[in-house]
Amino acid sequence: MAKQRTHRKANDVEFTRRAITINRPPSEVAAFWRQYGGEEAVANQTVRFVPAPGNRGTEVHLERTYERPGLIASVIATFKHENPSQREFDELFALKQILETGDTVTSDAWANRSSKPRPAQPIGERVAEEARL
């Protein structure tokens, strides 16, 4: 899995890019993205599906531009696990997991699906039920 992330900043625009390699053919990855991930190119986003060399599946290259948030908003977003680069990671990682394994893996620390991890110990039945929904 080759992932890269860079930030480029110009005026009030923040540019992020991230790539991930998925061990499935480009046609399958692109079709899945179109069905569940939106259009290949929307106003602030471009996504490319490139065959990975050596029959290693598909490189997905995702680029997005954002209006640069203010300092306080940026700190809050990072604290809440919601900054743009984190969102890109989460989306691409979920895409890879679903296409390669059929599901996303749930760890005990994130089982309550909140933005803040909890201790790595089992969750109660009620929270588990909510997590499954």
């Binding site: 059929g102 599901d103 110990q121 109660g124 039945e125």
Partner: peptide, 11 residues
Amino acid sequence: DVPDPQLLDRR
């Protein structure tokens, strides 16, 4: 004492 683990994912 912690809660008993639950099945969370299909695998």
